[in-house]
Design a protein around this nucleic acid. Structure first.
Lengths: 185, 185
DNA sequence: TAATAAACATACGGCACCGTATGGTCGCCA
DNA sequence: TGGCGACCATACGGTGCCGTATGTTTATTA
């Protein structure tokens, strides 16, 4: 059937659009009326699904936490069984997806406590993940902790620096650096 | 003399306060009227020194560029002559000052071209600086370039991650990691 | 088919900020 | 001492957003 129906929305549609705008223009651009226009409705719709703007932002953070930890880790774990290869996959993943949205949330976190808590949890989980992979690879616990810290901060930094280097060169370097961090005693 | 005079301002006072608010609350909080209140004047003063808000923001970026490259590099170079020690000093410096303001500018840069250009220049200069230090230390050019990239992104990442680790432990780790990157062939 | 509730539109008051226009105050210099 | 220019205050119109109140449509269920 054709259903020339005007496509009623649900709350998820709003958070999804919210995350899209967040990634592109930052939190301050996530506002009710512009979002409504982008969705082709009015804010009468918004205040049906949410009590206020803050509730949308909180909802966005929940979605992002899921996306940024569980989903990422699951993707990496599905790629391989070997710890080294999993780290390589994680590295490649950072260069593919993990850009704008992560950046925007981190920016947001610097002056919002709720976002800061979300980031803290995500960082802790991801760091623990990298650390465990290094331990599984055979590095002693203390060294693994240290080196995971270097590795993780480097991946985060990668998302925030804007060096005029080709994407390919940066990936290659990151992978080469990874190898030297894996081999060393 | 006592001069209970009402302290006339200049443009520099505005950019300084602008940078302070930027560091604490992000660009979106850098607004004319709130800034005027913080300075104890009205916006009549602001529009005497600047043509509009954008001019203030540009002026802030100019100040920051100076602060974030020339001043930083000069400080590090004054600390020691030896490349290794200079890198250690740079690392310590990141953990002392380089926090909130850098973060705020990077956040800003993700949805503003002027800020993005500023960041790009700063990153390029700082990266080149680290890279040259590694070359001076004796590493072959190709390795130095790669390793400088790891080092620099890691320092940037350090400013953006919020792991529940003590400041001291993080500094120690960063310095230990630095050593292993210096020694390796 | 009438009643009900979900999803949205419309209209409103209020606020915070932008930028302009214009008038006031102070120090300086002829 | 009168005028001039730097610096600031005051007042204004305009805009974009928030949240509320209340009507309007559509699907669902009795």
């Amino acid at each position: 059937m054709v259903t020339a129906m005007t496509e009623r929305l649900n709350a998820a549609a709003w958070t999804e659009m919210g995350l899209r705008v967040l990634a592109a223009q930052g939190v301050e651009a996530v506002r009710v009326e512009p979002l409504a226009r982008a969705l082709g409705v009015t804010k009468g719709s918004f205040y049906w699904h949410f009590s206020d703007r803050r509730e949308l932002l909180d909802s966005m953070l929940l979605d992002w936490k899921q996306l940024a930890t569980h989903d990422v880790i699951e993707t990496v774990e599905r790629a391989s069984d070997e710890p080294g290869e999993r780290l390589r996959e994680l590295t490649r993943l950072v260069f593919r997806h993990g850009g704008p949205l992560d950046r925007a949330v981190r920016a947001w976190a610097s002056h919002d406590d709720t976002a800061a808590n979300a980031i803290a949890r995500v960082d802790a989980e991801r760091y623990a993940f990298v650390r465990r992979l290094l331990e599984d690879r055979g590095l002693p616990a203390e060294v693994a902790a240290r080196r995971a810290h270097l590795l993780y901060t480097s991946l985060v930094g990668e998302q925030h620096t804007s060096l005029r280097l080709s994407r390919k060169r940066r990936v290659d370097w990151a992978l080469l650096n990874l190898e030297s961090l894996l081999d060393l005693p």
